[in-house]
Nucleic acid binder design. Sequence first.
DNA 1: CACATCTTGAACTGATTGGTTCAAGATAGG
DNA 2: CCTATCTTGAACCAATCAGTTCAAGATGTG
Lengths: 209, 209
Amino acid sequence: MAGKKQFDMDTALDAAMIQFWRAGYANTSVDDLSRATGLNRSSIYSSLGDKDTLFLRCLDRYAARYGEKYDAALSCAASEPLTAVRAFFDVTLGRIADPELPDGCLVAQSAMAIPVLSPSVAAHVKEALGFQRSRLRAALKAGRLTDQDAEAFAEHVAAVNQSLAVMSRAGASPAQLLAIVGVTVDALSQALRTRDQHPRATSAEPTTR
Amino acid sequence: MAGKKQFDMDTALDAAMIQFWRAGYANTSVDDLSRATGLNRSSIYSSLGDKDTLFLRCLDRYAARYGEKYDAALSCAASEPLTAVRAFFDVTLGRIADPELPDGCLVAQSAMAIPVLSPSVAAHVKEALGFQRSRLRAALKAGRLTDQDAEAFAEHVAAVNQSLAVMSRAGASPAQLLAIVGVTVDALSQALRTRDQHPRATSAEPTTR
DNA sequence: CACATCTTGAACTGATTGGTTCAAGATAGG
DNA sequence: CCTATCTTGAACCAATCAGTTCAAGATGTG
């Protein structure tokens, strides 16, 4: 079983990511990773680095993969901000509904463990959450929200998105998760409607830039 | 140092609770608990039970203590539902702002770890979250919300409350946390106003948030 | 003073942790 | 076929884990 590359790096990284995602950093041993990836214990260290390094790679992998999906979902924010935020939540709800994937969210889980994570890992987690806020802020500003509303909704939507991770772990039904985001979506809808009908506050008229 | 009760049970339980709260179940060893409580390793087992039992006691202690505060905050829901929900969030925000206490929330952290917790602990976590939803549902129904709105807002408010745990762990500022709950409070305010002005419809007129 | 009661620290068990090393074996290119 | 290259499993290390045991010592009561 040797001589050339015996395993697929992407498959192995995905398996490791899912293991960390399901059980968390503290509850994942190198043996668990070995089992999950099918890679030998020594192969993990030689090919994927030690536990901390591997976790960092998985975290970045997770952030990149779903970051792309969140970006795509928000891409229509300028013309259809409400649709964009709905699509944003659908990324998370779809992920939770996928039986192939664990519930929760690797970033949320890691954020909860920040006090006991290494500083570099903690920094990556905070960075990932910062990116999430940024893309939401940019999308909402590109939509028809005032800067102030965009800031507030960016924080709120990012937080509600994280709350889905907690609630899904506790066994919340899809209907319950929908109720959670529904209130937020309605609030955004209301804010957009208000801005349309009373156009004079901080910035210009609503446009479709 | 013996002969009679050498330690205060409540103090010890509080110390253990805070240790679990800060570091989580998986990242807390019995030695950590010994250090935190000041109790001897063998005293912990004889007086507080094994790690799992002690964690369960801490979890229930946490749920009871803050459950009371949440109940008190919601007690004025019938006459002042908006004030009640603000007070509800203030319980969490005040707890996060308290430098004596860890950030986050023991229930939220435990919920995230459900896949790797013992079944009995997992059941207690789900129960605690269920209680939270129940008290919110009851309060909102006692207020002026329709049953349907009360259900949705109960889910939403409970979830947003959990999101504060995640975001505070990631270093969110008090202002950011306020922005998160602000959107929810505004949404509730809107729902209440709508109900007052259109006692049967679901949509609303624009108002200034 | 003496006894009974309780707590304490320390030692111990067996399992598991992250991390390393290395000989055996499988493969590919020559 | 032969050799260089790579992977593998297993063994090993020191540290830590949860959990137990127990003699030594401190205390309150008689």
